[in-house]
């Protein structure tokens, strides 16, 4: 009865997404075994962010949902980052 048409994601796309995730995991393990100092953390977080985007877009179907959903998810992440940012106004300058 649901009036919205559903989108079917083919198996092949999902396997491709899985492979990408596994490659990124391997990459982040590899990178963090090297000594890059502070860039280590940055690289690991960027790779984790990339993995999160893949999961959100393909597995959680954000790529296929109404516009509202991706906007809301993005807004939640922005709010979280702002909270983190504002908190560090205290901790960075104490």
């Amino acid at each position: 009865m649901s009036e919205e048409k559903t989108h079917m994601v083919p198996y092949s796309t999902q396997i491709a997404a899985l492979l990408a995730l596994l490659v990124l995991t391997g990459l982040s393990v590899a990178i963090t075994q090297l000594e890059f100092g502070g860039y280590n953390t940055l690289a690991a977080m960027l790779l984790a962010g990339a993995k999160a985007v893949i999961v959100l877009a393909w597995y959680m179907h954000l790529k296929y949902e109404k516009q509202l959903f991706p906007v809301m998810v993005a807004a939640v992440f922005v709010i979280f980052l702002l909270v983190l940012f504002v908190t560090f106004f205290d901790y960075s300058y104490r």
């Binding site: 504002v86 106004f89 205290d90 300058y93 104490r94």
Partner: peptide, 10 residues
């Protein structure tokens, strides 16, 4: 006991 910068911002 927060930092002065945080007080200003808030």
């Amino acid at each position: 006991g927060m930092s002065g910068r945080a007080l200003f911002t808030f």
